[in-house]
Computed example of a mutant assay.
Amino acid sequence: MLNLLKEKSKFVYKETLKIHQISPSTRIASSLSCVEILTSLYYGGLINFNPNNLFDDDRDRVIISKGHGSISLYPILADLGFFSMKELINVGKEGSFLGTIPDPTIPGYETVNGSLGHGLGVGAGIGIALKKQDKSSNVIVLCGDGEMYEGSNWEAIMFSAEHKLDNLVLIIDLNKVSMLDFTKNIINLKPLAQKFEIFGWEVVEIVNGHDIGEVYNKLKITIESKNKKPKVVIVNTIKGHGIAELENNPLSHIISLTKDRIEEIIKGLENE
């Protein structure tokens, strides 16, 4: 399994760069920070989905709240048969359903993902509905750390604990850079883990969000856990992971790479 995940992670990383080369307005730094998270979920057997039956009642619901930073999901969905790999060359172009910010017209996306701070509330609502229907499906919500500034998230955090939604897993891509600065310079989220614990959540922390083995193993244990508590996995990642001019750059969110630079990075990956 680990070798497969490493191989797929490299594939997703490279294809995400190719998409950015085609469509420079995509958010490359934010998309690269969650590659290992998405790879583990979709290739690691951690979620139940059926590309041939998108609205299967028994599917797990994956809510991508950090929509702008999830372009790395495009190659995964294409590779798994949700749509053709050929469509990846049309991202951001007129007539394509693959926009620079995803929406529910894309097979495999459950919700509207443009405005931040809504994903967890939607996920909590789905979670309680599934409970009332005696469904065993899980709800996985992926959000960015900058989203944690939104009051709507904290309402959902209180709600989820109150209703003991142990079918709900929130994954926070803690890449520590918001749109225009480091998050610590805007509103410092620390101590984030303790805040969730006080609100009644089970908390798991991943030290290295780019170690595919650690990400997969901790996500697997967390998703399988049923202890009448909602769960949050705080994943320490690097925004723009693997690209020197993006890593540790407070403006990485809005930086676009040139086509030549992307070509250089891809060649480097192929020579590894």
Rank of each mutant, 00 (worst) to 15 (best):
V215D: 10
I171M: 11
L80G: 12
V62G: 08
I106E: 04
A244V: 03
S30I: 04
A156E: 08
K164F: 00
I186K: 12
H20C: 10
H163Q: 05
V139C: 06
L41I: 11
K66H: 03
M1Y: 08
N271K: 13
E202H: 12
E245Y: 01
P24I: 11
P230A: 09
I128T: 14
G125H: 03
Y13N: 11
I262A: 10
G240W: 00
V215R: 06
L5E: 08
N50T: 14
G117E: 03
N208R: 12
M148E: 10
S23Q: 10
D103I: 03
I206L: 13
I243R: 05
D79S: 14
Y42M: 10
K195C: 07
E214G: 11
V91R: 04
L189F: 00
E263W: 00
H210S: 13
E245F: 01
E245P: 02
K231C: 02
S136P: 00
S30E: 08
S40G: 07
I262T: 12
L41A: 14
Q194N: 14
I223E: 03
D211H: 09
D134C: 09
L4E: 14
M1T: 15
Y43M: 07
V177W: 00
Y74P: 11
K10C: 06
V215K: 04
N175K: 06
I255Q: 15
E205P: 02
T26C: 14
V204Y: 10
M179C: 08
F11I: 07
V235C: 14
F196A: 08
K184V: 11
L130Q: 13
L174E: 04
I63D: 07
I254S: 15
G127F: 00
S31I: 02
G99K: 15
I266F: 02
D134K: 15
I19A: 11
E147I: 01
N249R: 08
G125A: 03
P230Y: 01
V141I: 13
D60G: 07
S30D: 08
V122N: 06
S115R: 01
G146T: 06
K226Y: 02
G146V: 04
Y13G: 09
E94R: 11
P230V: 07
G121M: 01
K6G: 02
K231N: 05
K164V: 02
K135N: 11
E245A: 05
L142D: 04
K267F: 01
H210Y: 04
I187V: 15
D60K: 03
P102V: 12
E245T: 14
R27F: 05
T100D: 11
F196Y: 12
N175M: 06
K6Y: 00
E94M: 12
L5V: 04
N236G: 09
N138S: 14
I243K: 04
L41E: 14
P51Y: 05
M85K: 15
K267D: 13
G209Y: 06
R27D: 13
N249C: 09
N3K: 08
K195L: 04
P104Y: 05
A129H: 08
G119H: 08
